[in-house]
Nucleic acid binder design. Structure first.
Lengths: 143, 143
DNA sequence: TATATAATATGATAAAAATCATATTTAAGA
DNA sequence: TCTTAAATATGATTTTTATCATATTATATA
């Protein structure tokens, strides 16, 4: 439903949102440790996220990863879409392709409301907003 | 979060709930086709489900799979637990082990309510109740 | 402009999940 | 009680996901 890779990517963005800035770029190795993901693995994911404009980077000395204004306004769904592809979250819980709101499978039927709410939330909440919850002391890292 | 195998198992139980009885047992091959799962794969899962008392079976001629009264009262969570193990659904969306209601990660924080509702539903709804939705015309197979 | 530092591209390996294949056991019915 | 029809047990294979390794490219700064 949501892959390990997506989870790692979300963690990385949350970490960058709360710790980096254009003047304070963070290297792979300094991201991997605190978010608890293998360095070589997160490195690959970060590269992919850069290509898809979800995060920013600079090479060479003083280089590293950070989030610019645009990056901060990405949503969780944006991340999952890039890493896992579009459809995973849109499909019903049993991955039935003939299942939809009009003709729902039994599980879909009983879960529809909650499920829609989750998707809506993931669609609306930006990384920036999530990071704000942390600054307000409502939510917590470590990741 | 919820494996393919679990999805297949849920589909199988829903199919049996709506089509089988102790007097009308259904063979592997007649389950595999309508629920759209490879025969050899579902066979293995069905065997596991029998061992864990989630479904019933009989060998030999006139044999096959069916649900007894006890089986019909199993919940979706029961199925997922048997196939995927206990923890998968209880963990937070990012699989953080230090994340909980009191000290939630940002994602957990914004999804908590919907997520709890889903888990509660999966915990309470029995296979029998789900099948009833179908009989009442509120929900639909095919699977 | 040489050096060192950092991301990038590419691909190999390992682990897990999904799928397939088959010999064995059980039981119904002729 | 023999034959046949079914599940069961076991394990092999394939595919996908996760992980690791490294040579290449870009850039700050001495």
């Amino acid at each position: 439903m949501i892959s390990n890779s997506s989870k790692y990517a979300i963690k990385a963005l949350l970490y960058l949102a709360t710790h980096s800035s254009i003047d304070n770029k963070i290297m792979v190795k300094d991201i991997a440790k605190p978010i608890n993901v293998p360095k070589a693995y997160i490195a690959k994911l970060l590269q992919q996220l850069v290509r898809e404009n979800l995060i920013s980077s600079a090479r060479g000395p003083k280089g590293g990863f950070y989030l610019d204004e645009d990056n901060l306004n990405k949503t969780v769904i944006n991340i999952i879409s890039v890493i896992d592809g579009e459809d995973n979250l849109n499909s019903c819980m049993l991955s039935l392709n003939e299942c939809n709101e009009n003709k729902p499978c039994p599980l879909h039927y009983v879960l529809s409301a909650s499920r829609n709410k989750i998707i809506k939330t993931l669609n609306n909440k930006t990384i920036n907003e999530l990071a704000l919850e942390v600054k307000l002391g409502k939510a917590f890292l470590p990741l």
